[in-house]
Computed example of a mutant assay.
Amino acid sequence: MDFLPENFQTVLQNPTFTYLQTTAQDHLTTKLSHLRTMVLQPYIIEPVSSFLASYSTSMPDLLSIFLLAIIILVSLKILDYAYRVVVFWVTLVFRLVFWGSILGLGYYVYSIGIENAGRDFGWLWGVVYGFVGDFQEKSKTAAAAYAGNPK
């Protein structure tokens, strides 16, 4: 404890801290032993040991289990690689579409001017707003008809 600063050393050597540390260790040991006797032993250890004992004559050898584990690991690595490749290409397509639309919009504004682009944007906004308003009105009418009280 020579490498710790002096104020940490005094805290760690405090009798209260030492008491709490030993109490926590005793409490943790008690809880873990309770967990082992009440949960692990009857529900995991005994069933697995009885299963292994009943199939001990037809158990595969260690080499087969080792090869199976290696095959599973290699196949998971291949699937991870394939996943990364697919995610890369999908992300690349989305980025190209996004930046292409930004550049296309910039070129459109540059070629026709800001005033005409603003006018076109206002027209497009009106069309979208009209469609949204019509959709909301029709959905309210359909909800009222479904509820049984038509307008």
Rank of each mutant, 00 (worst) to 15 (best):
residue 28 L to M: 02
residue 59 M to S: 13
residue 19 Y to D: 10
residue 21 Q to T: 11
residue 39 V to D: 08
residue 42 P to W: 03
residue 44 I to H: 05
residue 21 Q to N: 12
residue 52 L to G: 07
residue 25 Q to L: 07
residue 38 M to S: 10
residue 40 L to H: 12
residue 20 L to N: 14
residue 29 T to M: 08
residue 63 L to F: 00
residue 34 H to T: 10
residue 34 H to V: 01
residue 40 L to G: 00
residue 43 Y to P: 03
residue 52 L to K: 05
residue 38 M to A: 15
residue 47 P to W: 00
residue 33 S to L: 05
residue 52 L to N: 13
residue 35 L to Q: 08
residue 56 S to E: 15
residue 30 T to K: 03
residue 29 T to K: 15
residue 29 T to D: 13
residue 29 T to P: 01
residue 58 S to L: 04
residue 27 H to Y: 14
residue 55 Y to D: 15
residue 20 L to G: 06
residue 63 L to Q: 07
residue 22 T to M: 04
residue 21 Q to I: 02
residue 53 A to Q: 11
residue 29 T to H: 11
residue 47 P to V: 02
residue 52 L to M: 10
residue 39 V to M: 08
residue 51 F to K: 09
residue 40 L to C: 10
residue 35 L to K: 12
residue 63 L to R: 03
residue 54 S to F: 00
residue 53 A to V: 02
residue 45 I to K: 05
residue 34 H to I: 02
residue 24 A to D: 02
residue 35 L to T: 09
residue 26 D to C: 06
residue 46 E to N: 10
residue 62 L to Y: 02
residue 60 P to W: 02
residue 31 K to T: 09
residue 50 S to A: 12
residue 29 T to C: 07
residue 37 T to M: 06
residue 35 L to Y: 15
residue 61 D to R: 08
residue 30 T to E: 07
residue 62 L to G: 01
residue 46 E to P: 01
residue 49 S to I: 11
residue 63 L to N: 07
residue 40 L to P: 02
residue 20 L to E: 09
residue 29 T to R: 12
residue 35 L to R: 13
residue 58 S to M: 07
residue 28 L to C: 03
residue 35 L to W: 14
residue 21 Q to Y: 06
residue 17 F to D: 10
residue 23 T to L: 12
residue 65 I to F: 03
residue 42 P to R: 00
residue 34 H to L: 07
residue 51 F to R: 05
residue 65 I to D: 06
residue 58 S to H: 01
residue 34 H to W: 00
residue 18 T to V: 14
residue 27 H to V: 03
residue 32 L to Y: 04
residue 61 D to T: 09
residue 25 Q to V: 04
residue 48 V to E: 13
residue 62 L to M: 08
residue 58 S to D: 11
residue 54 S to W: 02
residue 19 Y to F: 04
residue 53 A to K: 09
residue 22 T to S: 11
residue 58 S to W: 02
residue 41 Q to P: 00
residue 56 S to C: 05
residue 38 M to D: 14
residue 61 D to P: 09
residue 26 D to N: 12
residue 48 V to Y: 07
residue 25 Q to K: 08
residue 22 T to Q: 13
residue 42 P to H: 04
residue 63 L to V: 11
residue 63 L to S: 08
residue 55 Y to S: 15
residue 59 M to G: 04
residue 52 L to W: 01
residue 28 L to D: 00
residue 22 T to D: 06
residue 65 I to K: 03
residue 44 I to L: 14
residue 18 T to K: 15
residue 40 L to N: 09
residue 55 Y to I: 05
residue 42 P to L: 01
residue 41 Q to E: 12
residue 51 F to T: 09
residue 50 S to I: 03
residue 26 D to V: 01
residue 49 S to M: 14
residue 34 H to A: 05
